[in-house]
Design a protein around this nucleic acid. Sequence first.
DNA 1: GCGATTTAGTTGAGCATTCAACCACTATCG
DNA 2: CGATAGTGGTTGAATGCTCAACTAAATCGC
Lengths: 152, 152
Amino acid sequence: MGVMTRWLDPDEQRTWRAFLAASRALMDTLDRELQRDAGMPHAYYEILVRLSEAPGRRLRMSELADLTGSSRSRLSHAAARLEAAGWIRREDCPTDRRGQIAALTDDGFAVLAAAAPGHVEGVRRHLFDALSPAQVDQLRRISETLVAHLTG
Amino acid sequence: MGVMTRWLDPDEQRTWRAFLAASRALMDTLDRELQRDAGMPHAYYEILVRLSEAPGRRLRMSELADLTGSSRSRLSHAAARLEAAGWIRREDCPTDRRGQIAALTDDGFAVLAAAAPGHVEGVRRHLFDALSPAQVDQLRRISETLVAHLTG
DNA sequence: GCGATTTAGTTGAGCATTCAACCACTATCG
DNA sequence: CGATAGTGGTTGAATGCTCAACTAAATCGC
């Protein structure tokens, strides 16, 4: 406070607005496609993906929250819906009586398997097909830098 | 359909997940800061910014929707809230009787002026400070390519 | 001109997310 | 051991977004 604001110069302004527009358009498009084709928002899809990759297809709620970059509250609400849909099941954790374990059901796995090809195709079409290999590499480095910076 | 899915290779997978994590973390952080410091979500801030830059500080609703990359419905709901807060005003369009014009009020401009320095500082800290000038340039090109690809 | 189609914008219902408050259990430290 | 602080997770209220349906006005086509 009291320090003069470091305003964005025209190039930074342009970069920031382009980034905003691009990430919003990309996410909105993928979210809409997933909702239409699989009946779930992208956030829920991600939860199922993470569970499907975990040993035993099950994870502690808090670990799942970290992996999906979501708040505990958000994950709790989402888990309630996913459980109501029969796609996951919640179990008590044997080593910590506070803990809960989210487990992907067979139905959940089937829904995920049905949704995956279309979604991956969408990611490819809307993101990777538009960029050169060099740009993909740049985007990876930039993104990893940002993640480290934001969570560090 | 019927065509084999072009799955993501490990590098693409890594890029996609890093991009997801980075853009989500960045947006969440800025949204939270803006909500805390200015009492509005980032989407509303953007609406006020676009209005403040328009001639006469007023824009047609549909043009405002395009500029902010939002649906008409979303903008309508947002405008209702912004009007209730006294930050914008809606006027009839003289040339098209279906049209509405959103006009930034003096209160709205003052709120924006108060919020801007903190927000710009956040964008700088969380985004630009983390990247090299070359990366900023890369990010601009990538983002502009994506926008063109997604809206083309 | 006049009916059919588009375009501008709003509305309401349903869903997802946030924030703060909360309970239950665990870990820490005197 | 016992008090205190911290962690894991859930809940409810409030807010914002999406989708589909709708009104009203402009435009198109003949």
